[in-house]
Amino acid sequence: MSKEKSTNLKLNLTDILVTIVIALVFGLVFRLMGPVYDLVKPFGLHLDALLYGIWFIAAPFAALLIRKPGVAFLAETAAALAEMLFAGSGGVINLYYGLLQGAFSEAVFAAWRYKKFSLGVTSLSAFAALIASIILDAGYAYLPLLAGWNLTLYLVFRVIGSILLSGLFPYALVKGLEKTGVTQSLRPVTKEDYDVLN
């Protein structure tokens, strides 16, 4: 039984293609959001940090949809690569951010052994991606050298933004997609599905 389960959770061609297509869609979204994000920056109150969360969405969305190991990482990386190929602002930086954010997001789903895909876990994965982005930003954007109140505002906005845009939003989207029925054929067969047959 356990052997059957492990083969069951391996990615097949359908999973890979679906993940990459989704990643590409989000890559386009990232590309289009880039200028918007930069244009709200000069107001100085870090309204941009609220939008930052959208960049973590690919991983939790794909993981919720397909529910197999590796999907979150693949989605976030592919989305970052797509953004780079679409000549998004920042260029190659995106790829490094995508790799690390994907890995952190994936780690959260892995911690629950790909069995729990609740709103809480999804939000936590968005939060993990946020940690990844802050690690990179601390070195790249000299975050510690911002004035104290400004840095706090920045971090608070980022947390709110990431939970909303990459926790709640993908969860709601996948809930909507479940109603259309496309998700049924994507997910690994569970114990309950077998029980229905008996």
Partner: peptide, 24 residues
Amino acid sequence: MNRYSLTMLAQSIRRAQRTAIAME
């Protein structure tokens, strides 16, 4: 927004599935 996003995502997923099956 709902109709744009859900329709396009659902269609993309279905298309990706069909493509994968055709490739295999």
